[in-house]
Design a protein around this nucleic acid. Sequence first.
RNA 1: CGGGGCGUGGCGCAGCUUGGUAGCGCGUAUCGUUCGGGACGAUAAGGUCGUGGGUUCAAAUCCCGCCGCCCCGACCA
Length: 567
Amino acid sequence: MRLSQLFFTSLRDDPGEAEMASHRLLLRAGYVRQLGSGIYSLLPLGFRVNKRVEQVIREEQDRIGGQEIEMPVVHPADIWRASGRYDAIGSELARFKDRNGRDMVLAMTHEEVVGLLLADVVKSWRQLPVMLYHFQTKWRDEPRARGGLIRVREFVMKDAYSCDRDQAGLDASYEAQKGAYIRIFERLGLETVVVGADVGIMGGSLAHEFMVLNAAGEDVLVLCETCGYAANRQIARIPRPDPEPEETLSREEVATPGTTTIASLAAFLGIPEAKTAKAAFFVTGDGRLVTAIVRGDHEVNETKLSNAVGASTGIRPATVEEIKAAGMEPGYGSPIGAKGTVAVADELVARSPNLVAGANREGFHFKNVNVGRDFTADVTAEITNAQEGDPCPTCGSPVILRNGIEVGNIFKLGTKFTDAAGATYLGEDGREHPIIMGSYGIGIGRNVACIVEAHHDDKGIVWPEEVAPYAAHLVAIGANKDPQVNEVAERLHEVARGAGYWRDILYDDRDESPGVKFTDAELLGMPWILTVSPRSLAAGGVEVTNRATGERSTRPIEDVEALIRGA
RNA sequence: CGGGGCGUGGCGCAGCUUGGUAGCGCGUAUCGUUCGGGACGAUAAGGUCGUGGGUUCAAAUCCCGCCGCCCCGACCA
Protein backbone atom coordinates (compact mmCIF):
# COMPACT_ATOMS: atom_id res chain seq x y z
CA MET A 1 0.00 0.00 0.00
CA ARG A 2 1.33 3.36 -0.98
CA LEU A 3 1.29 5.81 1.90
CA SER A 4 0.62 8.58 -0.61
CA GLN A 5 -2.70 6.89 -1.40
CA LEU A 6 -3.66 5.73 2.07
CA PHE A 7 -6.68 7.43 3.62
CA PHE A 8 -4.95 8.76 6.68
CA THR A 9 -3.14 11.70 8.14
CA SER A 10 -0.74 11.83 11.02
CA LEU A 11 -0.82 14.67 13.50
CA ARG A 12 2.33 16.44 14.57
CA ASP A 13 0.85 17.60 17.83
CA ASP A 14 -0.85 15.50 20.44
CA PRO A 15 -4.60 15.85 20.35
CA GLY A 16 -5.59 17.92 23.36
CA GLU A 17 -8.24 15.66 24.73
CA ALA A 18 -6.48 12.31 24.60
CA GLU A 19 -5.08 11.39 27.96
CA MET A 20 -4.32 7.71 27.58
CA ALA A 21 -1.35 6.70 25.44
CA SER A 22 -3.48 4.38 23.31
CA HIS A 23 -6.00 7.09 22.54
CA ARG A 24 -3.33 9.66 21.76
CA LEU A 25 -1.32 7.37 19.50
CA LEU A 26 -4.26 5.87 17.62
CA LEU A 27 -5.49 9.40 16.90
CA ARG A 28 -2.09 10.82 16.03
CA ALA A 29 -1.13 7.95 13.77
CA GLY A 30 -4.40 8.12 11.88
CA TYR A 31 -5.97 4.83 12.98
CA VAL A 32 -9.25 6.19 14.32
CA ARG A 33 -11.35 9.32 14.41
CA GLN A 34 -13.99 10.29 16.91
CA LEU A 35 -17.54 11.00 15.80
CA GLY A 36 -19.14 11.59 19.18
CA SER A 37 -18.70 10.66 22.81
CA GLY A 38 -17.74 7.00 22.83
CA ILE A 39 -18.32 6.67 19.06
CA TYR A 40 -15.40 6.15 16.70
CA SER A 41 -14.73 5.53 13.03
CA LEU A 42 -11.98 3.14 12.08
CA LEU A 43 -9.75 4.44 9.33
CA PRO A 44 -8.04 1.89 7.06
CA LEU A 45 -5.16 1.28 9.45
CA GLY A 46 -7.44 0.88 12.44
CA PHE A 47 -9.81 -1.29 10.48
CA ARG A 48 -7.00 -3.65 9.49
CA VAL A 49 -5.82 -4.01 13.08
CA ASN A 50 -9.37 -4.78 14.16
CA LYS A 51 -9.66 -7.41 11.45
CA ARG A 52 -6.44 -9.02 12.56
CA VAL A 53 -7.56 -9.14 16.17
CA GLU A 54 -10.82 -10.66 14.99
CA GLN A 55 -8.94 -13.25 13.00
CA VAL A 56 -6.91 -14.37 16.02
CA ILE A 57 -10.12 -14.71 17.99
CA ARG A 58 -11.86 -16.48 15.11
CA GLU A 59 -9.09 -19.06 14.80
CA GLU A 60 -9.18 -19.83 18.50
CA GLN A 61 -12.98 -20.01 18.58
CA ASP A 62 -12.95 -22.36 15.63
CA ARG A 63 -10.26 -24.45 17.28
CA ILE A 64 -12.62 -25.28 20.16
CA GLY A 65 -15.45 -26.03 17.77
CA GLY A 66 -17.08 -22.64 17.56
CA GLN A 67 -19.32 -21.95 14.58
CA GLU A 68 -19.46 -18.38 13.30
CA ILE A 69 -22.85 -16.81 12.64
CA GLU A 70 -24.20 -13.29 12.57
CA MET A 71 -27.15 -12.01 14.54
CA PRO A 72 -29.00 -8.72 14.08
CA VAL A 73 -28.20 -5.42 15.78
CA VAL A 74 -31.86 -4.42 15.99
CA HIS A 75 -34.17 -6.64 18.01
CA PRO A 76 -37.91 -6.58 18.64
CA ALA A 77 -38.35 -5.44 22.24
CA ASP A 78 -40.56 -8.44 22.96
CA ILE A 79 -37.66 -10.85 23.14
CA TRP A 80 -36.05 -8.61 25.77
CA ARG A 81 -39.32 -8.45 27.64
CA ALA A 82 -39.49 -12.22 27.63
CA SER A 83 -36.13 -12.50 29.33
CA GLY A 84 -37.02 -9.77 31.78
CA ARG A 85 -34.15 -7.55 30.75
CA TYR A 86 -36.28 -4.95 28.99
CA ASP A 87 -37.34 -3.73 32.41
CA ALA A 88 -34.28 -4.77 34.38
CA ILE A 89 -31.86 -2.68 32.35
CA GLY A 90 -31.98 1.08 32.49
CA SER A 91 -31.30 3.65 29.81
CA GLU A 92 -28.12 1.82 28.86
CA LEU A 93 -30.40 -0.13 26.53
CA ALA A 94 -31.46 2.03 23.59
CA ARG A 95 -35.16 1.71 22.79
CA PHE A 96 -37.04 3.04 19.82
CA LYS A 97 -40.09 2.37 17.70
CA ASP A 98 -40.16 1.22 14.13
CA ARG A 99 -42.46 2.85 11.57
CA ASN A 100 -45.36 0.74 12.71
CA GLY A 101 -44.95 1.78 16.30
CA ARG A 102 -43.45 -1.51 17.45
CA ASP A 103 -40.95 -1.30 20.29
CA MET A 104 -37.44 -2.16 19.21
CA VAL A 105 -34.05 -2.16 20.91
CA LEU A 106 -30.46 -1.82 19.84
CA ALA A 107 -28.66 -4.95 20.94
CA MET A 108 -26.24 -4.69 23.83
CA THR A 109 -25.65 -8.43 23.72
CA HIS A 110 -27.29 -11.45 22.10
CA GLU A 111 -28.37 -14.07 24.64
CA GLU A 112 -32.05 -13.59 23.76
CA VAL A 113 -31.49 -14.19 20.07
CA VAL A 114 -29.36 -17.26 20.70
CA GLY A 115 -32.12 -18.63 22.91
CA LEU A 116 -34.63 -18.22 20.09
CA LEU A 117 -32.30 -19.76 17.54
CA LEU A 118 -31.84 -22.75 19.79
CA ALA A 119 -35.59 -23.09 20.28
CA ASP A 120 -35.98 -23.03 16.53
CA VAL A 121 -33.17 -25.33 15.50
CA VAL A 122 -32.38 -27.74 18.31
CA LYS A 123 -34.75 -30.65 18.82
CA SER A 124 -32.62 -33.53 19.96
CA TRP A 125 -29.78 -34.19 22.34
CA ARG A 126 -27.86 -35.32 19.27
CA GLN A 127 -27.59 -31.67 18.17
CA LEU A 128 -25.80 -30.69 21.35
CA PRO A 129 -23.43 -29.38 22.44
CA VAL A 130 -22.97 -26.48 20.09
CA MET A 131 -20.85 -23.35 20.37
CA LEU A 132 -21.97 -20.30 18.41
CA TYR A 133 -20.20 -16.99 18.07
CA HIS A 134 -20.27 -13.80 16.07
CA PHE A 135 -18.60 -10.44 15.77
CA GLN A 136 -21.26 -7.83 16.04
CA THR A 137 -21.81 -4.21 16.93
CA LYS A 138 -23.17 -3.51 20.38
CA TRP A 139 -24.69 -0.26 21.49
CA ARG A 140 -24.48 0.41 25.21
CA ASP A 141 -25.49 3.89 26.19
CA GLU A 142 -22.99 4.12 28.99
CA PRO A 143 -23.40 6.96 31.46
CA ARG A 144 -19.95 8.13 30.51
CA ALA A 145 -17.50 7.10 27.85
CA ARG A 146 -13.86 7.54 28.80
CA GLY A 147 -10.27 6.69 28.07
CA GLY A 148 -10.49 6.91 24.31
CA LEU A 149 -11.15 3.44 22.91
CA ILE A 150 -11.05 1.76 26.32
CA ARG A 151 -14.62 2.55 27.15
CA VAL A 152 -16.91 3.44 24.29
CA ARG A 153 -20.63 3.23 23.67
CA GLU A 154 -20.59 1.55 20.27
CA PHE A 155 -18.19 -1.31 19.79
CA VAL A 156 -17.76 -4.63 18.09
CA MET A 157 -17.72 -7.59 20.40
CA LYS A 158 -16.97 -11.20 19.82
CA ASP A 159 -19.68 -12.90 21.77
CA ALA A 160 -19.84 -16.66 21.94
CA TYR A 161 -22.56 -18.82 23.39
CA SER A 162 -22.15 -22.38 24.56
CA CYS A 163 -25.22 -24.56 24.45
CA ASP A 164 -25.08 -27.77 26.41
CA ARG A 165 -27.21 -30.66 27.52
CA ASP A 166 -26.24 -30.50 31.15
CA GLN A 167 -24.11 -28.89 33.79
CA ALA A 168 -21.14 -31.11 33.04
CA GLY A 169 -21.33 -30.03 29.42
CA LEU A 170 -21.42 -26.38 30.46
CA ASP A 171 -18.41 -26.93 32.69
CA ALA A 172 -16.50 -28.42 29.76
CA SER A 173 -17.51 -25.60 27.39
CA TYR A 174 -16.54 -23.03 29.98
CA GLU A 175 -13.12 -24.61 30.41
CA ALA A 176 -12.68 -24.79 26.64
CA GLN A 177 -13.42 -21.07 26.34
CA LYS A 178 -11.09 -20.31 29.20
CA GLY A 179 -8.33 -22.10 27.33
CA ALA A 180 -9.19 -20.33 24.09
CA TYR A 181 -9.06 -16.99 25.86
CA ILE A 182 -5.66 -17.72 27.32
CA ARG A 183 -4.35 -18.49 23.83
CA ILE A 184 -6.08 -15.44 22.31
CA PHE A 185 -4.62 -12.93 24.73
CA GLU A 186 -1.22 -14.51 24.50
CA ARG A 187 -1.30 -14.19 20.71
CA LEU A 188 -2.49 -10.59 20.99
CA GLY A 189 0.47 -9.76 23.19
CA LEU A 190 -1.66 -9.05 26.26
CA GLU A 191 -0.69 -10.20 29.72
CA THR A 192 -3.89 -11.00 31.51
CA VAL A 193 -4.95 -11.97 34.99
CA VAL A 194 -8.03 -14.16 35.31
CA VAL A 195 -10.21 -13.05 38.17
CA GLY A 196 -13.44 -14.26 39.68
CA ALA A 197 -16.22 -11.81 38.87
CA ASP A 198 -19.77 -10.74 39.57
CA VAL A 199 -22.43 -12.09 37.24
CA GLY A 200 -24.18 -8.72 36.90
CA ILE A 201 -27.04 -8.43 34.43
CA MET A 202 -26.17 -11.80 32.90
CA GLY A 203 -27.34 -13.70 35.91
CA GLY A 204 -25.96 -17.21 36.16
CA SER A 205 -23.70 -18.95 38.56
CA LEU A 206 -20.06 -18.30 37.78
CA ALA A 207 -18.03 -15.75 35.91
CA HIS A 208 -14.44 -14.90 35.28
CA GLU A 209 -12.94 -11.79 33.77
CA PHE A 210 -9.69 -11.52 31.88
CA MET A 211 -7.94 -8.41 33.07
CA VAL A 212 -5.00 -6.42 31.81
CA LEU A 213 -3.23 -4.61 34.61
CA ASN A 214 -3.28 -0.89 33.91
CA ALA A 215 -3.19 2.06 36.26
CA ALA A 216 -6.04 3.66 34.33
CA GLY A 217 -8.15 0.53 34.64
CA GLU A 218 -11.61 0.99 36.06
CA ASP A 219 -11.75 -2.28 37.94
CA VAL A 220 -9.95 -2.98 41.15
CA LEU A 221 -8.47 -6.44 41.45
CA VAL A 222 -7.69 -8.23 44.67
CA LEU A 223 -4.59 -10.32 44.16
CA CYS A 224 -2.59 -12.62 46.39
CA GLU A 225 1.04 -12.98 45.43
CA THR A 226 1.45 -15.94 47.76
CA CYS A 227 -1.23 -18.33 46.55
CA GLY A 228 -2.37 -16.73 43.30
CA TYR A 229 -5.87 -15.82 44.46
CA ALA A 230 -7.37 -13.25 42.10
CA ALA A 231 -10.81 -11.68 42.16
CA ASN A 232 -12.56 -8.54 41.14
CA ARG A 233 -13.01 -6.39 44.21
CA GLN A 234 -16.72 -6.40 43.46
CA ILE A 235 -16.89 -9.95 44.78
CA ALA A 236 -13.65 -10.61 46.70
CA ARG A 237 -14.67 -11.99 50.07
CA ILE A 238 -12.36 -11.09 52.88
CA PRO A 239 -12.24 -13.19 56.05
CA ARG A 240 -11.78 -10.52 58.69
CA PRO A 241 -10.64 -11.64 62.14
CA ASP A 242 -12.80 -11.05 65.21
CA PRO A 243 -12.24 -7.74 66.95
CA GLU A 244 -10.85 -7.71 70.50
CA PRO A 245 -13.59 -9.01 72.79
CA GLU A 246 -15.15 -6.41 75.08
CA GLU A 247 -17.84 -6.35 77.67
CA THR A 248 -21.01 -4.96 76.15
CA LEU A 249 -21.68 -1.50 77.56
CA SER A 250 -24.93 0.37 77.73
CA ARG A 251 -25.85 2.77 74.99
CA GLU A 252 -25.22 6.43 75.60
CA GLU A 253 -25.90 9.56 73.54
CA VAL A 254 -23.01 12.02 73.18
CA ALA A 255 -22.84 15.45 71.62
CA THR A 256 -20.52 15.42 68.60
CA PRO A 257 -21.01 18.79 66.92
CA GLY A 258 -19.77 19.19 63.36
CA THR A 259 -18.72 15.56 62.90
CA THR A 260 -20.42 14.61 59.66
CA THR A 261 -17.53 12.44 58.50
CA ILE A 262 -16.02 9.38 60.09
CA ALA A 263 -12.61 11.04 60.16
CA SER A 264 -13.90 14.06 62.06
CA LEU A 265 -15.96 11.90 64.40
CA ALA A 266 -13.04 9.63 65.29
CA ALA A 267 -10.79 12.63 65.82
CA PHE A 268 -13.37 14.39 67.98
CA LEU A 269 -13.88 11.40 70.24
CA GLY A 270 -10.23 10.34 70.15
CA ILE A 271 -11.05 6.81 69.01
CA PRO A 272 -9.90 4.78 66.00
CA GLU A 273 -12.18 4.76 62.96
CA ALA A 274 -12.55 1.03 63.47
CA LYS A 275 -14.59 1.76 66.59
CA THR A 276 -17.25 3.59 64.59
CA ALA A 277 -20.09 2.40 62.41
CA LYS A 278 -20.69 4.18 59.12
CA ALA A 279 -24.11 4.33 57.48
CA ALA A 280 -24.52 4.68 53.71
CA PHE A 281 -27.89 5.03 52.02
CA PHE A 282 -29.07 3.57 48.74
CA VAL A 283 -32.28 3.02 46.84
CA THR A 284 -32.99 -0.16 44.90
CA GLY A 285 -34.54 -0.26 41.46
CA ASP A 286 -37.84 -1.33 43.04
CA GLY A 287 -37.77 1.65 45.39
CA ARG A 288 -36.52 0.22 48.68
CA LEU A 289 -34.35 2.45 50.85
CA VAL A 290 -31.33 0.46 51.98
CA THR A 291 -29.17 1.53 54.91
CA ALA A 292 -25.79 -0.16 54.79
CA ILE A 293 -23.77 -0.27 58.00
CA VAL A 294 -20.06 -0.89 57.76
CA ARG A 295 -17.26 -0.15 60.13
CA GLY A 296 -15.82 3.34 59.88
CA ASP A 297 -12.53 2.07 58.50
CA HIS A 298 -14.23 0.25 55.61
CA GLU A 299 -16.17 1.28 52.56
CA VAL A 300 -19.40 -0.10 51.19
CA ASN A 301 -19.12 -2.43 48.22
CA GLU A 302 -22.18 -1.67 46.14
CA THR A 303 -22.07 -4.90 44.18
CA LYS A 304 -22.09 -6.99 47.33
CA LEU A 305 -24.74 -4.78 48.89
CA SER A 306 -26.87 -5.01 45.78
CA ASN A 307 -26.58 -8.79 45.78
CA ALA A 308 -27.26 -8.97 49.53
CA VAL A 309 -30.64 -7.26 49.15
CA GLY A 310 -31.54 -9.00 45.92
CA ALA A 311 -31.63 -5.77 43.93
CA SER A 312 -31.76 -7.23 40.45
CA THR A 313 -31.82 -3.81 38.83
CA GLY A 314 -29.00 -2.36 40.90
CA ILE A 315 -28.87 0.41 43.44
CA ARG A 316 -28.21 4.10 43.44
CA PRO A 317 -27.21 6.49 46.23
CA ALA A 318 -30.21 7.87 48.10
CA THR A 319 -31.05 11.55 48.20
CA VAL A 320 -31.04 13.57 51.40
CA GLU A 321 -34.84 13.80 51.24
CA GLU A 322 -35.20 10.04 50.97
CA ILE A 323 -32.93 9.54 53.98
CA LYS A 324 -34.81 12.06 56.08
CA ALA A 325 -38.15 10.59 55.09
CA ALA A 326 -37.09 7.38 56.83
CA GLY A 327 -36.32 9.26 60.01
CA MET A 328 -32.56 9.35 59.60
CA GLU A 329 -30.17 12.26 59.62
CA PRO A 330 -27.42 12.39 56.97
CA GLY A 331 -24.06 12.79 58.65
CA TYR A 332 -25.47 11.43 61.89
CA GLY A 333 -27.44 8.52 60.48
CA SER A 334 -28.01 4.97 61.63
CA PRO A 335 -30.92 2.52 61.54
CA ILE A 336 -31.60 3.18 65.23
CA GLY A 337 -35.11 4.51 65.43
CA ALA A 338 -35.46 4.55 61.66
CA LYS A 339 -38.48 3.19 59.87
CA GLY A 340 -39.12 2.09 56.35
CA THR A 341 -35.55 1.11 55.54
CA VAL A 342 -33.84 -2.18 54.91
CA ALA A 343 -30.93 -2.31 57.36
CA VAL A 344 -27.97 -4.26 56.05
CA ALA A 345 -25.16 -4.79 58.54
CA ASP A 346 -21.73 -5.83 57.46
CA GLU A 347 -20.93 -9.13 59.09
CA LEU A 348 -17.92 -7.57 60.82
CA VAL A 349 -20.04 -4.79 62.28
CA ALA A 350 -22.33 -7.46 63.64
CA ARG A 351 -19.32 -8.98 65.38
CA SER A 352 -17.92 -5.68 66.65
CA PRO A 353 -18.90 -4.54 70.16
CA ASN A 354 -19.54 -1.00 71.39
CA LEU A 355 -19.32 1.05 68.21
CA VAL A 356 -20.12 4.72 67.81
CA ALA A 357 -23.06 5.23 65.46
CA GLY A 358 -25.31 8.08 64.43
CA ALA A 359 -28.13 9.17 66.71
CA ASN A 360 -30.26 10.51 63.85
CA ARG A 361 -30.09 13.91 65.48
CA GLU A 362 -27.88 16.64 64.12
CA GLY A 363 -24.72 16.90 66.23
CA PHE A 364 -25.21 13.69 68.18
CA HIS A 365 -23.97 10.11 68.10
CA PHE A 366 -24.56 7.04 70.22
CA LYS A 367 -21.70 5.31 71.97
CA ASN A 368 -21.67 1.56 72.62
CA VAL A 369 -23.98 0.54 69.83
CA ASN A 370 -24.29 -3.21 69.38
CA VAL A 371 -26.04 -4.79 66.45
CA GLY A 372 -28.86 -6.99 67.57
CA ARG A 373 -29.38 -5.11 70.80
CA ASP A 374 -29.69 -1.55 69.55
CA PHE A 375 -31.10 -2.27 66.14
CA THR A 376 -31.99 -5.30 64.16
CA ALA A 377 -30.30 -5.88 60.86
CA ASP A 378 -32.68 -7.11 58.19
CA VAL A 379 -29.71 -8.61 56.40
CA THR A 380 -26.25 -9.44 57.68
CA ALA A 381 -23.70 -9.96 54.96
CA GLU A 382 -20.18 -9.10 54.00
CA ILE A 383 -20.65 -5.82 52.14
CA THR A 384 -17.28 -4.08 52.33
CA ASN A 385 -14.48 -3.52 49.87
CA ALA A 386 -11.28 -5.43 50.28
CA GLN A 387 -8.36 -3.25 51.26
CA GLU A 388 -4.66 -3.59 50.60
CA GLY A 389 -3.18 -5.86 53.26
CA ASP A 390 -6.43 -7.65 54.10
CA PRO A 391 -6.08 -11.41 54.57
CA CYS A 392 -6.36 -13.54 51.43
CA PRO A 393 -9.51 -15.69 51.47
CA THR A 394 -7.60 -18.81 50.52
CA CYS A 395 -4.24 -18.54 52.30
CA GLY A 396 -4.48 -15.61 54.70
CA SER A 397 -1.48 -13.71 53.34
CA PRO A 398 -1.93 -9.97 52.82
CA VAL A 399 -3.56 -9.20 49.46
CA ILE A 400 -2.58 -6.41 47.09
CA LEU A 401 -4.91 -4.22 45.03
CA ARG A 402 -4.30 -3.38 41.39
CA ASN A 403 -6.28 -1.61 38.68
CA GLY A 404 -7.27 -3.57 35.63
CA ILE A 405 -9.05 -3.27 32.29
CA GLU A 406 -11.47 -6.05 31.44
CA VAL A 407 -10.56 -7.42 28.02
CA GLY A 408 -12.78 -10.47 28.09
CA ASN A 409 -15.19 -12.39 30.22
CA ILE A 410 -16.76 -15.81 30.52
CA PHE A 411 -20.12 -16.54 32.17
CA LYS A 412 -21.96 -19.66 33.17
CA LEU A 413 -25.48 -18.57 32.39
CA GLY A 414 -27.58 -21.64 33.06
CA THR A 415 -31.11 -21.71 31.65
CA LYS A 416 -32.30 -18.13 32.13
CA PHE A 417 -32.41 -17.33 28.43
CA THR A 418 -33.32 -20.74 27.12
CA ASP A 419 -36.20 -20.86 29.59
CA ALA A 420 -37.38 -17.48 28.36
CA ALA A 421 -37.14 -18.64 24.76
CA GLY A 422 -38.54 -22.10 25.39
CA ALA A 423 -35.37 -23.71 24.09
CA THR A 424 -35.48 -27.34 25.05
CA TYR A 425 -34.29 -30.60 23.60
CA LEU A 426 -35.45 -34.18 23.80
CA GLY A 427 -32.93 -36.17 25.77
CA GLU A 428 -31.88 -39.77 25.43
CA ASP A 429 -34.44 -40.42 28.13
CA GLY A 430 -37.19 -39.21 25.84
CA ARG A 431 -37.95 -36.21 28.02
CA GLU A 432 -37.66 -32.49 27.40
CA HIS A 433 -34.75 -30.68 29.01
CA PRO A 434 -33.74 -27.03 29.00
CA ILE A 435 -30.58 -26.18 27.09
CA ILE A 436 -27.85 -24.82 29.33
CA MET A 437 -25.99 -21.76 28.13
CA GLY A 438 -22.75 -19.95 28.77
CA SER A 439 -21.65 -16.68 27.23
CA TYR A 440 -18.20 -15.40 26.42
CA GLY A 441 -17.33 -11.85 25.34
CA ILE A 442 -14.31 -10.01 24.02
CA GLY A 443 -14.45 -6.34 22.99
CA ILE A 444 -12.35 -5.86 19.85
CA GLY A 445 -11.64 -2.14 20.06
CA ARG A 446 -10.81 -2.30 23.72
CA ASN A 447 -8.33 -5.06 22.98
CA VAL A 448 -6.74 -2.96 20.26
CA ALA A 449 -6.40 -0.07 22.72
CA CYS A 450 -4.94 -2.38 25.35
CA ILE A 451 -2.44 -3.74 22.86
CA VAL A 452 -1.27 -0.19 22.19
CA GLU A 453 -1.15 0.48 25.92
CA ALA A 454 1.15 -2.48 26.31
CA HIS A 455 3.16 -2.01 23.11
CA HIS A 456 4.35 1.52 22.54
CA ASP A 457 7.30 3.75 23.29
CA ASP A 458 7.89 7.49 23.27
CA LYS A 459 8.02 7.49 19.47
CA GLY A 460 4.84 5.65 18.75
CA ILE A 461 3.09 2.32 18.48
CA VAL A 462 5.02 -0.96 18.36
CA TRP A 463 2.61 -3.55 16.96
CA PRO A 464 3.12 -7.21 17.73
CA GLU A 465 3.51 -9.01 14.39
CA GLU A 466 0.28 -10.90 14.88
CA VAL A 467 -1.89 -7.78 14.74
CA ALA A 468 0.12 -5.24 12.72
CA PRO A 469 -1.97 -3.68 9.93
CA TYR A 470 0.92 -4.12 7.50
CA ALA A 471 3.86 -6.48 7.73
CA ALA A 472 6.47 -3.75 7.33
CA HIS A 473 6.94 -0.07 6.61
CA LEU A 474 9.12 0.70 3.60
CA VAL A 475 10.90 4.04 3.61
CA ALA A 476 12.47 5.20 0.37
CA ILE A 477 15.00 8.00 0.68
CA GLY A 478 16.45 9.88 -2.23
CA ALA A 479 14.22 8.08 -4.71
CA ASN A 480 13.95 11.10 -6.96
CA LYS A 481 17.71 11.47 -7.04
CA ASP A 482 18.80 7.90 -7.38
CA PRO A 483 16.72 5.88 -9.88
CA GLN A 484 17.93 2.66 -8.33
CA VAL A 485 16.36 3.54 -4.98
CA ASN A 486 13.05 4.09 -6.68
CA GLU A 487 13.41 0.89 -8.66
CA VAL A 488 14.24 -1.26 -5.63
CA ALA A 489 11.50 0.26 -3.50
CA GLU A 490 8.91 -0.21 -6.24
CA ARG A 491 9.99 -3.81 -6.66
CA LEU A 492 9.75 -4.58 -2.96
CA HIS A 493 6.31 -3.06 -2.92
CA GLU A 494 5.26 -5.18 -5.88
CA VAL A 495 6.54 -8.31 -4.18
CA ALA A 496 4.61 -7.45 -1.04
CA ARG A 497 1.41 -6.83 -2.94
CA GLY A 498 1.76 -10.15 -4.60
CA ALA A 499 2.48 -11.96 -1.37
CA GLY A 500 -1.04 -11.74 0.01
CA TYR A 501 -3.41 -9.39 1.78
CA TRP A 502 -1.75 -9.59 5.18
CA ARG A 503 1.79 -9.66 3.83
CA ASP A 504 1.39 -6.30 2.12
CA ILE A 505 3.65 -3.53 3.34
CA LEU A 506 3.20 0.20 3.75
CA TYR A 507 5.33 1.98 1.20
CA ASP A 508 6.14 5.58 2.02
CA ASP A 509 6.44 6.96 -1.49
CA ARG A 510 5.59 10.49 -0.42
CA ASP A 511 7.83 13.37 -1.37
CA GLU A 512 8.73 14.06 2.23
CA SER A 513 12.00 14.63 4.00
CA PRO A 514 13.71 11.62 5.58
CA GLY A 515 12.94 12.96 9.04
CA VAL A 516 9.22 13.05 8.38
CA LYS A 517 9.27 9.55 6.93
CA PHE A 518 11.20 7.99 9.79
CA THR A 519 9.09 9.77 12.36
CA ASP A 520 5.88 8.55 10.77
CA ALA A 521 7.24 5.03 10.39
CA GLU A 522 7.93 4.90 14.10
CA LEU A 523 4.61 6.49 14.97
CA LEU A 524 2.59 4.06 12.86
CA GLY A 525 4.37 1.13 14.45
CA MET A 526 4.83 -1.62 11.86
CA PRO A 527 7.08 -4.32 13.33
CA TRP A 528 9.73 -3.88 10.62
CA ILE A 529 11.02 -0.73 8.98
CA LEU A 530 12.72 -1.26 5.63
CA THR A 531 14.91 1.59 4.42
CA VAL A 532 16.07 1.89 0.83
CA SER A 533 18.50 4.71 0.11
CA PRO A 534 21.70 5.36 -1.81
CA ARG A 535 23.48 4.65 1.43
CA SER A 536 21.78 1.32 2.06
CA LEU A 537 22.35 0.25 -1.53
CA ALA A 538 26.02 1.12 -1.23
CA ALA A 539 26.13 -0.98 1.94
CA GLY A 540 24.74 -3.94 0.07
CA GLY A 541 20.97 -3.69 0.02
CA VAL A 542 18.10 -2.76 2.30
CA GLU A 543 18.33 -1.66 5.88
CA VAL A 544 16.03 -3.74 8.06
CA THR A 545 15.10 -2.31 11.47
CA ASN A 546 13.20 -4.11 14.15
CA ARG A 547 10.74 -1.56 15.54
CA ALA A 548 10.58 -3.21 18.92
CA THR A 549 14.27 -3.76 19.63
CA GLY A 550 15.81 -1.14 17.39
CA GLU A 551 18.21 -3.74 15.98
CA ARG A 552 19.15 -2.99 12.41
CA SER A 553 21.12 -4.70 9.72
CA THR A 554 21.63 -4.29 6.02
CA ARG A 555 20.45 -7.28 4.01
CA PRO A 556 20.80 -8.14 0.35
CA ILE A 557 17.75 -7.18 -1.70
CA GLU A 558 16.96 -10.78 -2.60
CA ASP A 559 16.89 -11.73 1.09
CA VAL A 560 14.45 -8.96 1.85
CA GLU A 561 12.26 -10.02 -1.05
CA ALA A 562 12.24 -13.54 0.32
CA LEU A 563 11.41 -12.20 3.75
CA ILE A 564 8.45 -10.28 2.35
CA ARG A 565 7.21 -13.35 0.53
CA GLY A 566 7.21 -15.11 3.84
CA ALA A 567 10.03 -17.51 3.22
C1' C B 1 -27.29 12.10 36.92
C1' G B 2 -23.89 15.02 40.72
C1' G B 3 -19.14 17.92 40.58
C1' G B 4 -15.19 20.43 37.58
C1' G B 5 -13.29 22.20 32.80
C1' C B 6 -13.40 23.41 27.65
C1' G B 7 -15.77 24.95 22.67
C1' U B 8 -11.82 30.61 18.13
C1' G B 9 -9.26 27.89 10.06
C1' G B 10 -7.35 20.59 9.61
C1' C B 11 -4.13 20.14 14.69
C1' G B 12 -2.22 22.87 19.04
C1' C B 13 -3.29 27.52 21.14
C1' A B 14 -3.55 33.27 22.16
C1' G B 15 -7.26 37.11 22.26
C1' C B 16 -12.23 37.49 26.69
C1' U B 17 -10.42 40.32 32.90
C1' U B 18 -10.99 46.26 30.71
C1' G B 19 -16.57 45.34 24.23
C1' G B 20 -14.12 48.75 18.85
C1' U B 21 -10.19 45.84 11.92
C1' A B 22 -9.85 37.84 14.30
C1' G B 23 -4.24 36.55 15.50
C1' C B 24 0.19 32.93 16.28
C1' G B 25 2.76 28.11 15.53
C1' C B 26 2.16 23.68 12.85
C1' G B 27 -0.22 21.61 8.75
C1' U B 28 -2.32 22.51 3.47
C1' A B 29 -1.61 24.51 -2.00
C1' U B 30 1.89 26.48 -5.88
C1' C B 31 7.01 27.55 -7.40
C1' G B 32 12.17 27.15 -6.44
C1' U B 33 16.21 25.22 -3.50
C1' U B 34 16.93 20.91 -0.37
C1' C B 35 16.97 15.24 0.69
C1' G B 36 19.52 9.51 6.45
C1' G B 37 15.99 12.16 11.53
C1' G B 38 9.70 16.45 11.99
C1' A B 39 14.43 21.33 5.86
C1' C B 40 14.52 26.64 3.71
C1' G B 41 12.57 30.83 0.88
C1' A B 42 8.53 33.20 -1.72
C1' U B 43 3.38 33.40 -2.63
C1' A B 44 -1.56 31.77 -1.42
C1' A B 45 -5.99 29.46 0.27
C1' G B 46 -8.68 28.52 4.60
C1' G B 47 -12.58 30.96 10.34
C1' U B 48 -21.13 31.07 10.88
C1' C B 49 -15.29 32.65 17.09
C1' G B 50 -20.45 25.62 19.19
C1' U B 51 -25.66 27.56 18.96
C1' G B 52 -30.11 30.67 20.04
C1' G B 53 -31.54 34.93 22.41
C1' G B 54 -30.46 39.49 25.27
C1' U B 55 -27.64 44.14 26.60
C1' U B 56 -25.05 47.89 23.51
C1' C B 57 -23.92 52.72 18.53
C1' A B 58 -20.81 48.23 18.50
C1' A B 59 -20.16 41.35 21.21
C1' A B 60 -15.12 36.11 20.16
C1' U B 61 -15.25 39.43 24.62
C1' C B 62 -20.76 41.06 29.08
C1' C B 63 -25.75 38.33 30.57
C1' C B 64 -29.33 34.08 29.97
C1' G B 65 -30.85 29.46 27.64
C1' C B 66 -29.46 25.27 24.79
C1' C B 67 -26.00 21.83 22.38
C1' G B 68 -21.39 19.28 22.17
C1' C B 69 -16.80 17.41 24.11
C1' C B 70 -13.24 16.18 28.12
C1' C B 71 -12.07 14.96 33.28
C1' C B 72 -13.63 13.09 38.52
C1' G B 73 -17.74 9.95 40.97
C1' A B 74 -22.33 5.70 40.48
C1' C B 75 -22.39 1.14 35.35
C1' C B 76 -19.70 -2.75 31.72
C1' A B 77 -16.32 -5.89 26.55
